[in-house]
């Protein structure tokens, strides 16, 4: 038997989707951990945010991997969806998808596009202003102009204080993220070839907890700053 494989196989494509998914889930955990600090202590949140925003390893290594993962996961996900649509040219007159698979697993493209739309809002809110201050204005101090105070906590509060529409958009987005993770977490393990009678049920439970707790945490932070200021 001689190998007939040329280039990336359909399984190889799925593995890359899973690996970028793993990194993005790790990023969500790390992002939420820092956000939760804003609920506990403004000073702590400021210091950690400044560290993350100026540390050369975070900025020079992790941020490029993050950007690659986000772009790759979305672009590749949409390309796979296009390919999958092409694999059935004539659709069924009657198709009972709900009889054998969850809504979440069948509609990853919908929840994924909703998260992508949220990212556009999130980048507009936080990332673009951050890049502007740091790399266009060249201000790496992390201070509010004319003060000795760090700006991060103030910027976070400013986005949610008296902003009910933004809070509602955040809640809807994190519900969609939750739906995406409810399938994505356990699916990533299957894609990289891990399925065991002993641990797969545990992975599924852990995935459900992760998929609910992480988005709920982000919503909590938004609500706390909306309601308490």
């Amino acid at each position: 038997m001689a190998s007939k494989v040329q280039g990336l196989t359909s399984i190889g494509r799925k593995v890359i989707m899973a690996l970028t998914g793993f990194f993005l889930m790790f990023f969500l955990l790390q992002h939420l951990s820092i956000n939760m600090m804003s609920v506990v202590s403004a000073e702590l949140f400021n210091e950690v945010s400044h560290f993350m925003g100026t540390n050369p390893i975070v900025q020079g290594l992790l941020q490029p991997i993050l950007i690659f993962s986000v772009v790759f996961h979305f672009v590749w996900g949409m390309y796979l969806e296009y390919q999958n649509n092409q694999a059935r040219e004539i659709k069924y007159a009657m198709y009972k998808g709900s009889a054998n698979a969850s809504w979440m697993s069948r509609n990853m493209i919908i929840s994924g596009l909703a998260v992508l739309a949220f990212l556009a809002l999130h980048f507009y809110d936080f990332w673009i202003p951050e890049m502007n201050v740091k790399y266009i204005q060249g201000d790496m101090s992390g201070m509010l102009s004319g003060t000795e105070e760090y700006r991060y906590y103030e910027e976070l509060v400013h986005k949610f204080k008296g902003q009910p529409i933004r809070v509602v958009l955040y809640i809807i987005s994190f519900v969609m993220l939750s739906l995406h993770l409810l399938h994505g977490f356990q699916s990533s393990f299957q894609s990289v070839g891990y399925n065991s009678t002993k641990y797969t049920p545990i992975i599924k439970i852990a995935g459900n907890i992760f998929a609910i707790a992480i988005p709920a945490g982000f919503v909590l932070v938004a609500l706390v700053h909306f309601l308490s200021h």
Partner: peptide, 9 residues
């Protein structure tokens, strides 16, 4: 054939 998305159907 299309790509597997682990729906389990």
């Amino acid at each position: 054939f299309g790509n597997c998305t682990n729906t389990g159907a």
